[in-house]
Design a protein around this nucleic acid. Structure first.
Lengths: 211, 211
DNA sequence: TTCATATCGATAGAAATCTATCGAAAATGA
DNA sequence: TCATTTTCGATAGATTTCTATCGATATGAA
């Protein structure tokens, strides 16, 4: 199995979303062509992306919706569950916790949240208990948690991450808009809102200029 | 001015973040090499990215921090303000509104939020007033708002977007995990958490398999 | 049965993106 | 003053990513 590009992974998630819709509507088959039309990705690109999961389709028919959904889920490792801890139970953290159930269907179970705000400690947010920061290490090791979700303010992010890495965290989902410093083998996935906004605003500026 | 790739725009935002830090620390100069080391992007790539904003550096010295910050901000259109409306004042919407002030420093002013929950209408969230959905069109046209932020549940996203497009919205910042259908000339920037999670979980799975 | 059509998977070619190299310019220090 | 070092910007080459093309196969209509 050769490594797959980030772009392919992102597209696979996109296809899966559409495929799940088709599944809800009881469609039996779906073709790469359909996925291409719905996403704007090129037909052949969709085929390549799908082929990296190992599925094979039937000419003139396409792929069985159920099989395809399963294959992509398996490939993304969304079928077995990984445990996660979230640090930073503020606005953004709470919002993420609100998606807890959906994330569970995608293989990520958020077991607990951590914060240093005494008002939050001991409470539950969207059914997830909030603990004091000091409890992180002990709990993470005991429960074999491998994913850390970072939703703290920018200046707090690096110390939090340093702390996480001491406790066996292998992958970090980082929502703080800072460049984290981590060892090579740690997986860091950034959700960079500023970068996203940058694309939006520059594109809009170019567009308005042209008119 | 030739068009700039999305990847370049995202990196420019990243550089700017680092440059602003340097500015806070009263550094006078910063080099492409430094930015490269801090981000992991290749030296020459950083130079190319920077050159697309039109800045010129000084050999052996680098770029003046102030000038560089200004050039990138200008290029991303973060120096003049664009007005935005947000639809969907739930968890995620509130979290976004919490970043209102930071977004303003990046050229986006969120003037109002909209929701169809009667409990929210008439209230303020992070100082932003919440109106009924029906008010959107009228207000958007009167205030010449061009950016729509979509933080509604997936099933509500497409209707909301359709409504937005009827009222002169030109760019959409979409946080709903669905494929939006829009005319060619509308700018859509997706923040796709599932795609991000897909990258994280697949990478982690591969990593754990290797061990 | 035969033909037209839609789709598949594979391969090859095109385009975009990234990396390496080179000469020039500014600072530093001998 | 002159060599050394660091960085710049430009160009060329390598790599990755995307798109076009082709034969093969299953379906459905003539």
């Amino acid at each position: 199995m050769k490594p797959v590009s980030i772009l392919t992974l992102r597209r696979l998630s996109q296809y899966l979303q559409i495929i799940l819709e088709a599944q809800k509507e009881r469609q039996e088959y779906i073709s790469a062509t359909t996925l291409a039309n719905m996403t704007g990705v090129h037909r052949t690109q969709v085929r390549k992306d799908l082929s990296s999961t190992g599925v094979v389709g039937v000419p003139k028919v396409g792929h069985k919706v159920n099989e395809l959904a399963l294959a992509i889920s398996e490939f993304l490792n969304w079928n077995d569950s990984s445990e996660a801890f979230l640090v930073g139970a503020g606005n953004l953290g709470s919002a993420i916790l609100g998606y807890r159930e959906i994330f569970e269907t995608k293989g990520m179970k958020i077991l607990a949240a951590f914060d240093n705000n005494p008002d939050l400690i001991g409470t539950k947010i969207h059914d997830v208990p909030v603990f004091a920061m000091e409890k992180f290490g002990n709990l993470a090791q005991r429960l074999h948690v491998h994913i850390g979700i970072v939703t703290v303010p920018p200046e707090a992010a690096q110390p939090v991450v340093d702390m996480m890495l001491e406790t066996g965290i292998l992958a970090i989902w980082n929502f703080a808009p800072v460049q984290l410093v981590t060892p090579e083998d740690i997986i860091v996935e950034d959700v960079d809102l500023y970068a996203s906004l940058a694309v939006l605003s520059q594109r809009l500026a170019v567009k308005l200029m042209k008119k």
